[in-house]
Amino acid sequence: MRFLMYVVAALLPFLLKGYVSWLIGLALIYATISISWAILENEGRVSMGHSFVVGSSAYLSAITYLLFNSLAAGFLISIPLSAILFYILKRTTGKTAFVFATFTLSLLSYVIAPYIVIGERGGEEGFFILHDLPSLLFSSFSFVASAIVFESFLKSKLGYFARAIKSDELASRAVGIEVEKVKLTTSVISSAIGSFAGLSLALYFSHVSPEIFSLEVSVFPFISYVVTGGRKEYIAFTSIVLFLISSYLNALLTGAHLLLYAMLLIFSPKIGGWVYAKGQERLKV
């Protein structure tokens, strides 16, 4: 059922025309970012730095494209780069400090990005990628592929191990789960999906700018998750809807969607509490 919904969502931009088609194509990329984020959440890690995963992939692809005429090289470097960074952060921090650390990482990349200059290019303006690749096709394909990986991950051993680690890391080790291996693998999967999203974004706009590292990208998956009420299986769909709503709001009044994001962040504990209360209700039945 969900699988069908993924396919329908991915086909939508091809069925529609013009601006709406373009917008939904972009929404698919944001949904892919959320999927990458949700893989870490399944392990109990709330990342506030996914803009780093996305941005580094986009930037590195753009840079290797400029230097060596190869998009793939940068993209391929970015996967282990963010996987290793996130893995190190997981090793060295607990759940709360992980939020700080990833947030700081994304902030750091946001502040540094305008200083990345290669030859005469880069800086505030960023990099252009002149290509004639079918970018919409690429992003819908990445979306469906990520969604399938995500769904099978949730039902796999790895997904269950990750959930055990989320509940209690020491208890997981005490029953023989190889926690470090699981952490590393989830980091790689999450970062691979995030890097696909980054490359999609770069291709979609034929351009990357420092804005790709902005807070907006970092908080987007978390907000989608809050809106789903914690049911991460639906995060891709909520992300699409949320993205469309925020584009609409932004068109009405520039920046209005960020006010919405801010409100959702501010009331996220309340909404999280609602999820918890619901769990208890379910028990009574």
Binding site: V46, K95, V99, L215, A262, L265, P269
Partner: peptide
């Protein structure tokens, strides 16, 4: 963690 995330929302607001 909650309070930190809330404060981020507050800052963005």
């Amino acid at each position: 963690m909650d309070a930190t995330i809330v404060s981020l929302g507050y800052g963005i607001a």
